[in-house]
């Protein structure tokens, strides 16, 4: 039987609403705390605004957990009109508290409406990639059972790989999201670190991919890693690429070089992702990256 499915996600997905072709979706906004004051993504308070604060005022920014009340409001508003809800979350390895909050809501509504919480094992455009892939699946197979959707969502998670170049790891470090990439910090030699969030890593944390001395080197490294993953998974074509940039004006030419390089790999879909206030907290000025769903 065809199911009516409602999607929930949050705004650290590297996409804006208009880039998601699905009518039944609500995007929660992560609270961002800058110098003790709470902000949410808006026309005024966006990635550009925070980058300018970082560069000119040296502010400290943090994020907070998804607000349980806000998820409940969405569920309450839509529970009677849908058969199932799918909440695509950022990696529980990066925000265990947000996943816990989502789980609380799932349990609270156990007997009201089934909710699947998908741990994307991703952040930023990686979450976007997982979300779009699951939407594609349920659109193409509207009669899938809950168990089948869960199984296919897990396959999507394990086929999604994201790579980022961050000018300075201090933003990740300060936000407690550095994971194993801490090994890339503290070098006397100026290095450009490449970090990854890989769907096959069960911990769902940031891992070090490598380091380069020039952007050309790190871009090549990311390209090679994507090819390596394609070989590992025996795929000849990427299903979807989502790039992310725009954290200030730095590195415009270098990220364009990367995106062109990655686009030269056979792929079905390419999306130029958009940064949000919440991911800017961790990426910092000049960061960029690509996520591939294989």
């Amino acid at each position: 039987m065809e199911k009516k499915i409602f999607f929930i996600t949050a705004d650290n997905l590297g996409l804006i609403r208009e880039q998601i072709d699905y009518p039944y979706l609500e995007i929660l906004k992560f609270p961002v705390i800058v110098e003790g004051k709470e902000y949410r993504q808006s026309d005024e308070f966006n990635a550009k605004w925070l980058i300018s604060k970082y560069e000119n005022e040296n502010v400290v920014a943090q994020t907070s957990t998804l607000v349980q009340k806000e998820i409940i409001e969405i569920v309450e508003k839509n529970k009677s009109d849908f058969d199932l809800m799918i909440h695509v979350l950022m990696s529980s390895g990066l925000s265990a508290a947000s996943f816990k909050v989502a789980e609380n809501v799932r349990k609270q509504y156990e007997n009201v409406i089934p909710i699947i919480n998908v741990d994307s094992r991703q952040a930023v455009n990686g979450v976007g990639n997982v979300l779009l892939a699951i939407i594609d699946i349920v659109k193409a197979n509207p009669a899938l059972s809950r168990e089948e959707i869960e199984r296919k969502a897990q396959e999507v998670v394990e086929s999604t790989f994201s790579y980022f170049v961050v000018n300075d790891l201090k933003y990740l470090y300060k936000g407690g999201r550095i994971g194993k990439a801490q090994s890339l910090m503290g070098s006397i030699l100026h290095i450009i670190p490449v970090i990854g969030i890989l769907g096959t890593e069960v911990e769902g944390i940031v891992v070090p991919i490598g380091k380069g001395r020039t952007f050309k080197q790190v871009n090549s490294m990311i390209y090679d890693k994507i090819i390596e993953k394609m070989n590992e998974k025996s795929v000849s074509k990427i299903k979807r690429i989502i790039s992310i940039s725009g954290y200030g004006d730095k590195n415009a030419d270098v990220y364009t070089e990367l995106f062109e390089k990655v686009k030269s790999i056979p792929h079905d879909d390419y999306i130029d992702g958009k940064p949000a206030l919440v991911d800017t907290v961790y990426v910092g000025p000049g960061g960029y990256g690509v996520s591939v769903y294989l």
Binding site: S92, G93, A96, F99, K100, E103, V202, E203, G204
Partner: peptide
């Protein structure tokens, strides 16, 4: 080492 975080999940 591979089981870290598993107890937080259902």
């Amino acid at each position: 080492a591979q089981m870290v975080g598993k107890t937080d999940l259902d």
